[in-house]
Simulated scan of single mutants.
Amino acid sequence: MSVKSDDITSRISDILAEPWVIEDGQVVPKTENVSQKNGGKRLEATYLYADLADSTLLAKTYVPEFTARVMRMYLRAAVDAIRFKEGHIRSFDGDRVMGIFIGPRRRNNAVEAALHINWAVSEVINPQLEKHLKNSKTTWSLSHRVGIDDGKTLIVRGGARDNSDLISIGTAPNVAAKLSGIRKEPGTITITDRVYSRLNQKNKLMGEKPVWKNAVDRQVGPHTIKTYSTSGWRKP
């Protein structure tokens, strides 16, 4: 299919000029539920990004088949944890997955999903990798990061015809993604004060000990945000 410069110009101009038809969403939409032309869904949602760390080094160290197994193990664990806590998967980006949570318990569900991912990494994936590589000259221990934020979001559709996907626009998805990419963290899960302030006691304490490290003011893009972190885990 050939595309002329006039066609591209016309289509881009249409996007800029077309008025939006935006609805308040009650569920996390699928791609087909959002009009590609000018539709949008507005949500109050919690975003979780789970990101496998050091995947480039992993790919350089091991054969592609082993690297693929490690990535699949991590993404499988993350997807299961997100779905188990009523989250919705709407995006994969290589070794990273995004989950969206809605409803009055969305912040607690997202944090519990993250704690379950930590459990899977610490108690399932890494022990199995250690066993699998015990006769190898090299070892590999999987590490990862999870970022979580909450807020108003506009979900629209981007792309063309059959090659389109949902785009989440707002502070929450942007900040959650940035937090999942920060490697020098005191914990593997980092959440914003918007999430922490709505957690129940079960998700703030492990027994009588605090789950989260002291608040840190962090510059995330143009935003100065109070964040909390933990390396704790919880079995599903």
Results as ranks from 00 to 15, higher is better:
residue 21 V to A: 08
residue 22 I to Q: 01
residue 37 K to V: 14
residue 48 L to D: 02
residue 38 N to K: 06
residue 22 I to K: 01
residue 21 V to I: 11
residue 44 E to S: 13
residue 29 P to G: 10
residue 56 T to G: 09
residue 35 S to E: 10
residue 19 P to K: 03
residue 51 D to R: 03
residue 34 V to W: 03
residue 44 E to N: 14
residue 29 P to C: 05
residue 47 Y to M: 14
residue 28 V to S: 04
residue 21 V to F: 02
residue 46 T to V: 13
residue 21 V to P: 00
residue 22 I to P: 00
residue 30 K to L: 10
residue 45 A to T: 09
residue 42 R to D: 00
residue 23 E to F: 08
residue 40 G to S: 08
residue 36 Q to R: 03
residue 40 G to M: 11
residue 55 S to F: 10
residue 27 V to K: 15
residue 44 E to C: 09
residue 28 V to P: 03
residue 55 S to G: 00
residue 44 E to R: 10
residue 38 N to M: 04
residue 54 D to P: 00
residue 29 P to F: 07
residue 41 K to C: 10
residue 58 L to G: 08
residue 47 Y to D: 01
residue 35 S to I: 01
residue 30 K to G: 15
residue 27 V to Q: 15
residue 57 L to H: 09
residue 26 Q to W: 02
residue 58 L to H: 07
residue 54 D to G: 10
residue 46 T to I: 06
residue 57 L to R: 10
residue 47 Y to E: 02
residue 48 L to F: 04
residue 51 D to K: 04
residue 33 N to M: 13
residue 20 W to V: 12
residue 37 K to D: 07
residue 25 G to C: 11
residue 20 W to Q: 11
residue 19 P to I: 03
residue 58 L to E: 08
residue 20 W to M: 11
residue 44 E to G: 05
residue 31 T to G: 00
residue 46 T to S: 13
residue 35 S to T: 03
residue 48 L to C: 09
residue 47 Y to G: 00
residue 44 E to A: 12
residue 39 G to T: 06
residue 27 V to E: 15
residue 49 Y to H: 11
residue 32 E to D: 14
residue 39 G to A: 07
residue 47 Y to K: 01
residue 56 T to R: 07
residue 29 P to H: 05
residue 56 T to P: 03
residue 25 G to L: 11
residue 40 G to Q: 08
residue 31 T to L: 14
residue 58 L to Q: 07
residue 52 L to W: 06
residue 28 V to I: 15
residue 29 P to Y: 04
residue 42 R to F: 13
residue 33 N to S: 13
residue 54 D to M: 02
residue 38 N to D: 14
residue 45 A to W: 04
residue 41 K to Y: 11
residue 19 P to S: 01
residue 30 K to E: 13
residue 26 Q to D: 12
residue 48 L to P: 07
residue 53 A to Q: 14
